[in-house]
């Protein structure tokens, strides 16, 4: 899976550079989030702007990260949702759970 992680003074951003986030590759994103949390990172932003398709496994990994962050008094935020990806968050009501931003810059300004 093609992931890029960048840390700055406000947030650690994981860029998901894949067209699909599904049962085949989403465990790698989970492992990256767990690696960051265990290394002391508290606040993570996932940039999904290159993702055109997310399935229930991909959604589940984001929920897992959200719960993990909450347990550690941290946060997991999302940005860059394409129309079809956002429609799956709405179908499963997860758009009410996550803080979702248009861009990385917008998310950084909110911190």
């Amino acid at each position: 899976m093609n992931l890029k992680t960048e840390a700055n003074d406000k947030l650690t951003v994981i860029f998901v550079r894949e067209e699909r986030l599904d049962a085949h590759n989403s465990e790698e994103l989970k492992a990256e989030m767990n690696r960051l949390f265990e290394g002391g990172t508290r606040d993570i932003l996932i940039d999904l702007k290159e993702v055109r398709f997310i399935d229930s496994s991909g959604l589940g990994v984001l929920v897992s990260g959200f719960k993990n962050a909450s347990t550690r008094q941290g946060s997991l935020k999302l940005c860059g949702l394409q129309t079809q990806v956002r429609s799956m968050f709405e179908l499963t009501r997860l758009h009410r759970v996550f803080d979702i931003f248009q861009t990385v810059d917008e998310a950084l300004e909110s911190v």
């Binding site: 229930s56 929920v63 179908l91």
Partner: peptide, 18 residues
């Protein structure tokens, strides 16, 4: 169907619902 309340979220169980 999956639980929708933030405090009851599960990682799995959305596939059949979708």
């Amino acid at each position: 169907d999956p639980a929708f309340a933030p405090g009851q979220l599960e990682d799995k169980g959305r596939g059949i619902f979708i």
